[in-house]
């Protein structure tokens, strides 16, 4: 196994320079680990609720990725963001949660198990977007179209699609913190 710190920080660094492929790989590696933490800690939420929390943490990682100091190690930053958002998500769902930081270290260092939740569908966030944003989000995600293809179909410029997508994500981030 390659050093996780080195591998993940290289991927996120590339992502922050605009490399979408590296970013997808980074998020794909982080997700099962997050899922393990949420599953272990949030049994009361049920599978659907757990996956919603995982998605909220991913969105928070995305909207706050610029707060990682690239000269410092990535994993402590990642623990701090994940821990904050998991505690926050559980608290808003009416439960309290005790999350010792060691848990994150252990889980992040363990190998992720294959998981059954990955294929689960969650409507919690996308369901609250307006129709046009939701259509763009669906086209990019479910149908795997590029932003250029979506633009052609909806007669929008690619730039406008990117902006709309960016705004939809920011909106989901606000929804996820319970601000709307």
């Amino acid at each position: 196994m390659m050093d996780r710190e080195a591998e993940w920080s290289a991927l996120l660094r590339a992502a922050m320079e605009g490399d979408g492929r590296a970013y997808a790989r980074f998020l794909g590696l982080v997700t099962p680990v997050l899922r393990g933490i949420v599953r272990a800690r949030g049994r009361d939420l049920g599978a659907a609720g757990q996956e919603d929390v995982v998605q909220e943490v991913l969105i928070a990682l995305h909207t706050k990725r610029h707060t990682w100091d690239q000269t410092a190690p990535l994993l402590p930053w990642l623990y701090a963001v994940a821990r904050h958002k998991v505690v926050d998500a559980f608290r808003r769902r009416g439960g309290s949660v005790h999350l010792p930081i060691d848990d994150f270290v252990d889980v992040l260092e363990a190998e992720a198990e294959p998981d059954a939740l990955a294929a689960r569908d969650s409507a919690a966030l996308i369901g609250q977007l307006d129709a046009r944003s939701a259509a763009i989000v669906r086209a990019v995600s479910l149908e795997g179209q590029s932003t250029a293809e979506v633009g052609a179909r909806l007669s929008m410029s690619e730039g406008a699609v990117r902006v709309a997508l960016h705004r939809a994500i920011q909106r989901m981030a606000r929804l996820a913190k319970g601000a709307e």
Binding site: G18, G20, A24, I59, R65, V140, S141, S146, L165, I169
Partner: peptide, 17 residues
């Protein structure tokens, strides 16, 4: 939305930050 779909959305928004 599946989490893997969310990941592709976020990846499509990987503009330099």
């Amino acid at each position: 939305m599946k989490t893997e779909d969310l990941i592709s959305i976020l990846a499509a928004d990987a503009t330099p930050d």
